[in-house]
Amino acid sequence: MVEACPHLTYREAGDGATFDGADFGEPRAFCTVTESFVQPMRADICNARYGLDPETDCEFYVEPESSSDESEHPDADR
C-alpha cells in the first residue's frame, strides 16, 4: 500500500509566500520540497488517497534523503 508523501506536513500559518501570517484554523497540507502549501486537489496525491501515488503522480517528488549514518552501516566492501 502506498503511503503518504514523506515531504508532506501540515501547517496552520502562512508560508511567507502566500498570505503571509494567515491563520487557516485547520492545519493545511504543506510540501517541504516546493516550500509551499499545496492545492487541495494535489493534497490527495500527497496523502496517497484513491490509489494515487506521490512518487509517480507528483512531478515535484524527490527521493527522501537517507537518514542513516554511514559510520553505523559500514560498506562491507571496504
Binding site: T18, F19, A22, R28, S36, F37, V38, Q39, P40, M41
Partner: peptide, 10 residues
C-alpha cells in the same frame, strides 16, 4: 470548486 483553496484565496 475542488482545485484551489485558501492557499490561493484567503
Amino acid at each position: 470548486g475542488g482545485v484551489h483553496g485558501k492557499e490561493a484565496h484567503p
